[in-house]
Design a binder for these strands. Structure first.
Lengths: 217, 217, 217, 217
DNA sequence: GCCTAACCGAGACGGTACGTCCGGTCTTTTT
DNA sequence: AAAAAGACCGGACGTACCGTCTCGGTTAGGC
């Protein structure tokens, strides 16, 4: 967890003997990234221009390119920033059943910026495959935190005897994030509650040996 | 099945009053599509330019745009052409067990141009998400035939009593294609035999109620 | 004479084995150069942008930079083109006296594009001194043809015994063009008839030993 | 004479109620102006950047813009500063002949920083024509003092009966400065002794009715 | 055996975004 | 309060690429 795309910006800097001159205005970072997400959601990655972003953020192009070497890196960082805002593991739901936990996790992330995040992710797909490293970065920012949450919830279910120990946790925890990612990014169909329920009841829970003693739905 | 992206080109043509003038040189189609795949694999969709493709095919840009209305459509058609070469459903394997069938299907499609095809698909991801319609088209060309094959094999397993009837065939048949697509397109990691075996033994077969009475592997 | 700034474009090209591909649209050259002069006169060299010129000429920036390597070269060529249009040596006036010839030459060049040409030259001064070679080029285009005309007229006056042979024709022929150039470019005051008459009667004619048996003025 | 571009900076300052805080470091003025001339001569006005000048002077841009409102004004001031060092009218030469006086004036101004000054002036031409007012200012600083010296020397020659009274002193006194300015600024060729001698013997002296009873040269 | 339309490779065309650079302003820390 | 350092906005430059159009030349029918 704790993905930090901006690490190169925030942490890798060698302050040198001393930090002289005017400080980077950190508020510009946020303003630019916010504008990036806005435009990304509105027009998509291809039709977004750096000038649009700079104008929306009331910034100059210089301020943009001082921070990121290219439009692509800027967008990746914008999405990573969003993810940092969105993913607050730790206060994971605990309803007593795996099925309940998974549904509660979905509800929780649908609230907040969840929707907007998914829109941004979808707009972003175009650039993920441009180069392997950006694809990795995007995956780390998007799917890994989600898989981590799944891993924790399933581990809990195993611990309380609800789920079988016969399967590889690592693989099973990837099922919902991967299929959700594919659905959002490639199929561009919504990752909604019915889709999640279908996956739970027909794939995940059966694979874990959890029978259909389901409540309402 | 039998996806044909080029249908519009090859079949929709209205011959008009009569076909006059020089005939279109059909060998140029193949040369251009081959060059497209070459470049796509080498540099990716974004860095590929139409001029590059034309030069590689020793063709002019006019010949390209006479055949396809845009770079995107040309690339989609190139990949569809590949798919046509690769996917020969109908003679699906029949080994007696679902596990054996799935592995045999994998081996079959790994032969031929399978590797190259996957590289092309991966390079292609960039454009899939650009517009919903191209995403749909790409999905239809890539994943649906694969899911269809899964559907047939699983239906056979249910018919012979190997697999449970308790789950939704439609959803279960999507698991391997979706996760494979996500792995190839977004993670850009190989969809190889170990990954397939992991999915089969930890997700698909348990979900279908098929126990681990596996042979060697 | 016969200054040709565009020589590099029009004559230096090695056609290679054959001239292939679409031909340069020569009308675009003229359209761009005309637009260049328009904008140059309207806003001056510094405030003129290449995009302005391209838009005015209904051209793309590509067409501009295919012809000239920089804004500076484009402007120099535009002025040279103008000069080519303006300077039609050969049909020099012949009034019987040097004074009459010089005044007639002035009247002739004041007609036509003369005025516009001088405006362009004035706007252009900014760039002449940027680099030695552009300064040379500008000088060749602007002043040399003028000096050549002076040389011819003065030589005629010497031939018919009107002017002394005691002075260096080369130097004397430079007086009016140089002082006119300085006045236009640096002082930015008009090179008008009173100024010319002052030079003739107080400098050029006395230096050539021609007395003040002047007509009206 | 006594042009002082820097007047606004050095004399117009209102000391206010009291001069508080750190005193302005007057040595920075000179350092910046020196650096300005250096860079101006090295790369010309257009390619010179304010950052270059500040770096060379080991100053910040703030120190520059606290003193001059723009790059243009700074450069004009730098050249005016030079001029102040160079032009010391009053002790004009007096050799008994106009020809001797003019040559002696040339020798005097060639000494000192004359050469460097001319280089700077040449580099400066670019900005002179940008706006009329800077052109005027430059002309006043450069050419007018020179013309004034010519005027005095020629008036003396007329007074002692060496030169004719038949011509307009004002116009004749402009000949050498104007042609010298044109040669330096536009042609970028040296205003050297042979050039001066050519002008004197073929234009100025004949125009003033002074015959070729020249000494050695 | 011509005529003519449609093809071919090559490459110029208009338009538009990218990433760089610089002028003039503002901010931070040090003197 | 002035100094050096350097980030800030705005906007022009020159490059690259998409999809269209034009050039000279070639390849078929149809006459």
């Amino acid at each position: 967890m704790a993905i930090d795309f901006a690490a190169n910006e925030n942490e890798d800097r060698d302050p040198g003997p001393r930090a002289r001159g005017r400080k980077r205005d950190e508020s510009r970072d946020a303003a630019i990234l916010d504008a990036t997400i806005d435009i990304l959601v509105e027009v998509g990655f291809e039709k977004m221009t750096v000038d649009m972003v700079a104008a929306r953020a009331k910034a100059g192009k210089g301020a943009v390119y001082r921070r990121w070497p290219s439009k692509t890196q800027m967008v990746l960082d914008a999405v990573a920033q969003m993810k940092r805002d969105v993913a607050h593991l730790g206060h994971l739901p605990d309803t007593g059943t795996l099925r309940g936990d998974m549904l509660a996790l979905f509800e929780a992330s649908s609230a907040g910026q969840g929707e907007r995040f998914m829109q941004a992710i979808a707009a972003l797909a175009a650039l993920l495959a441009q180069q392997p490293q950006t694809a990795d970065a995007g995956h780390e920012a998007m799917i890994e935190p989600w898989a981590e949450a799944n891993r924790v919830l399933i581990a809990r279910a195993i611990a309380r005897g609800e789920a079988t120990t016969a399967v590889d946790l690592e693989i099973v925890a990837q099922v919902i994030p991967s299929m959700g990612g594919y659905r959002s990014l490639i199929q561009r169909r919504p990752f909604d509650r019915p889709f999640l329920v279908g996956l739970l009841d027909n794939v995940l829970l059966p694979a874990l040996g959890i029978g259909p003693d389901r409540p309402s739905t």
